[in-house]
Each structure stands twice: as structure tokens, then as C-alpha cells.
Lab assay of single mutants.
Amino acid sequence: QTTIQVRVPYRVVGLVVGPKGATIKRIQQRTHTYIVTPGRDKEPVFAVTGMPENVDRAREEIEAHITL
């Protein structure tokens, strides 16, 4: 297991999390990772935990939302 920090712009935190957390839950299920969402007043950084290859996939999925 490994944990990485995925930093995103403030404006996309809501996009990545999705309505009621649906998007981030879907990313967690698809990539078999555990993702901690940043709090409102915190740095916009997601903490992604899982097997290294799964963590990389989750990071790619999160980063895909940044380019939307």
C-alpha cells in the first residue's frame, strides 16, 4: 500500500468530488483505492491510498477532471 497526494486547482475540487461525492466514489471503486477529499478550508489536495498501480490510475482519473 502507498499513499500519494494529488494537488488540484481549487475550482475543480467540486468537479472531482461530484454530486454527493458520487464521482470520487466511482473513482475509488474503479481503481480500488481509498481517497480522502480535502476539506473546504484546506489545501486542494486529495490523499490517495492503495496499491501503487491503482494509485497511479486514480491520479490519472483525478487529473482527467482538471482538463475538462
Score class of each variant (00 low, 15 high):
60 E>D: 10
16 V>I: 13
46 F>W: 07
7 R>S: 04
4 I>P: 03
12 V>W: 13
40 R>V: 11
58 A>N: 00
59 R>K: 13
45 V>G: 05
2 T>G: 08
16 V>F: 03
25 K>P: 01
55 V>W: 10
2 T>R: 08
34 Y>T: 15
57 R>V: 01
33 T>D: 00
48 V>T: 02
60 E>W: 06
67 T>M: 11
68 L>H: 13
31 T>E: 05
31 T>P: 01
56 D>S: 13
19 P>L: 08
59 R>V: 05
14 G>Y: 00
3 T>S: 07
15 L>G: 07
4 I>S: 06
26 R>T: 07
10 Y>P: 15
14 G>D: 14
27 I>V: 07
31 T>S: 00
29 Q>I: 03
33 T>K: 09
37 T>H: 04
18 G>I: 03
30 R>F: 05
44 P>K: 07
37 T>P: 14
39 G>V: 06
13 V>Q: 01
29 Q>H: 12
18 G>N: 08
63 E>I: 11
50 G>T: 03
12 V>G: 12
5 Q>D: 07
30 R>N: 12
60 E>V: 11
68 L>I: 07
24 I>A: 05
20 K>H: 14
39 G>K: 13
53 E>M: 11
4 I>C: 11
61 E>R: 05
27 I>M: 08
62 I>H: 03
36 V>E: 12
68 L>M: 15
25 K>N: 10
20 K>V: 07
36 V>R: 14
18 G>Y: 10
36 V>K: 14
56 D>L: 14
30 R>T: 10
65 H>L: 15
49 T>D: 00
51 M>N: 12
44 P>D: 01
1 Q>Y: 15
65 H>T: 14
13 V>E: 01
20 K>Y: 07
25 K>M: 06
16 V>K: 04
43 E>D: 11
16 V>H: 02
33 T>H: 02
58 A>Y: 02
60 E>S: 11
32 H>S: 13
36 V>F: 09
45 V>R: 05
35 I>T: 00
16 V>Y: 00
25 K>G: 08
59 R>W: 00
45 V>N: 08
22 A>P: 06
32 H>A: 13
31 T>C: 06
2 T>Q: 10
45 V>P: 03
4 I>R: 01
56 D>H: 08
7 R>Y: 09
60 E>Q: 14
61 E>D: 03
39 G>I: 01
23 T>S: 09
23 T>W: 05
8 V>I: 02
10 Y>G: 13
46 F>T: 04
19 P>A: 10
56 D>P: 03
10 Y>K: 15
17 V>G: 05
50 G>Q: 01
1 Q>A: 13
61 E>C: 12
61 E>A: 13
23 T>G: 10
66 I>C: 12
42 K>F: 02
65 H>I: 14
38 P>Q: 04
46 F>D: 00
37 T>A: 13
56 D>Q: 15
